[in-house]
């Protein structure tokens, strides 16, 4: 009986994956190439896929950091920016840029657009799918760039790599912290919640569901079921048949979601340092609240946006100051696994 149900679920998920892929193929018409440099992509290159909207402030550091890690080419979809993001991106030699004015929400929060680009350009490559406010780090990232990591994953026979989001925040109201494009955001976003995450297994897609952190502590203490999901699978050895299910939290086929060890050991994992709480958070919350483009159940997030717009101090005496990946490894937020 149990197997029959499992088979039926596997069958349904296969069709879901096909549906999502077909949808992405349809949505390709919403994309207009601004700068297509994909001809420069070499076999074995590591690619990054990003959908952005008004990220001129974050992008310089974002690109620098991931370039430094060894991303060879960035494939970016710009959703109607009006802050110079597009022109700036179009000038970058390792960026291919598309634009669209269509709804971000109806493109499954940009995933449809990126899926199409992944079908076209990602097949056979290690692909990093990120938001512009996510900075990937992993054990030894200063001395072992992404090609070393992906080679390690290849050797372990792994096709996917998990990195949970860690919300970084300043001491004092975020709106009051200075930041200029290109600065290291962690000069001010130097703090995080180290030990209040809660995890469960989601059997349907076999992923872990990680929630908690500062947003749960400050904004969702009274309704934890709504606390933002933090687990992500940003790095995947792509196949054109793969597709992200919800953001990069879950992917199909579901075997790729097994980025954790269930046998009592620790697997290699990283962290996405989340730079959402730069000073732009207040204005951005105001805009998102009116655009209602961000979450599936937009209404229940009104209170969240209201709280963000009040620019609260997220810091508390039990906050932890960030010092580097070794600290996050020691705290158990990520793991080296056997990669010593």
């Amino acid at each position: 009986m149990e197997t029959a149900r499992e088979l039926w679920l596997a069958y349904r998920l296969r069709w879901k994956r096909r549906r999502l892929l077909a949808r992405a193929v349809r949505k390709r018409r919403q994309l207009r190439a601004v700068a297509d440099r994909t001809g420069a992509i070499q076999p074995g290159d590591i690619l990054a896929f990003v959908a952005v909207r008004n990220e001129a402030l974050q992008l310089p550091h974002f690109l620098d950091h991931h370039r430094g890690l060894g991303v060879d080419h960035f494939l970016v979809v710009d959703n109607d920016s009006d802050d110079g993001t597009r022109a700036w991106l179009a000038d970058q030699a390792d960026v291919s840029l598309w634009r669209t004015g269509h709804s971000y929400k109806r493109a499954r929060f940009g995933v449809d657009w990126l899926t199409w680009l992944q079908i076209r350009h990602g097949h056979g490559h290690w692909c990093l799918t990120l938001d512009a406010d996510e900075i990937l780090i992993y054990p030894h990232h200063e001395t072992r760039p992404l090609p070393a990591l992906t080679e390690r994953l290849d050797r372990e026979g792994r096709e996917s790599f998990g990195a949970m989001m860690l919300d970084m925040y300043p001491q004092g109201p975020p709106g009051a912290q200075p930041y200029a494009a290109g600065d290291d955001p962690f000069e001010t976003l130097a703090w995080f919640d180290a030990g209040n995450h809660f995890i469960e297994v989601q059997p349907r897609l076999r992923n872990l569901w990680v929630r908690g952190g500062v947003r749960a502590r400050v904004f969702f203490a009274d309704r934890p079921r709504r606390a933002p999901t933090l687990n992500k699978i940003p790095l995947v050895r792509w196949n054109r048949r793969y597709v992200y299910n919800t953001s990069t939290h879950q992917i199909l086929p579901r075997r790729l979601n097994a980025v954790y060890d269930a046998e009592g050991g620790e697997s290699l994992s990283g962290v996405l340092l989340h730079t959402k709480f730069l000073n732009t958070i207040v204005a951005r919350s105001r805009e998102e609240k009116t655009r209602r483009e961000h979450f599936e159940v937009a209404d229940s997030y009104q209170a969240y946006y209201d709280a963000l717009m009040a620019d609260p101090d997220l810091w508390c005496p039990a906050s932890t100051r960030y010092t580097g990946w070794r600290q996050l490894e020691a705290l158990g937020l990520m793991s080296r696994g056997g990669w010593v």
């Binding site: 980025v259 620790e266 697997s267 937020l333 793991s335 696994g337």
Partner: peptide, 14 residues
């Protein structure tokens, strides 16, 4: 570490 997690640690990859 790869085969025996740190005791009492429940995390994203273990």
């Amino acid at each position: 570490r790869r085969t025996r997690a740190r005791p009492g640690l429940w995390m994203q990859s273990s």
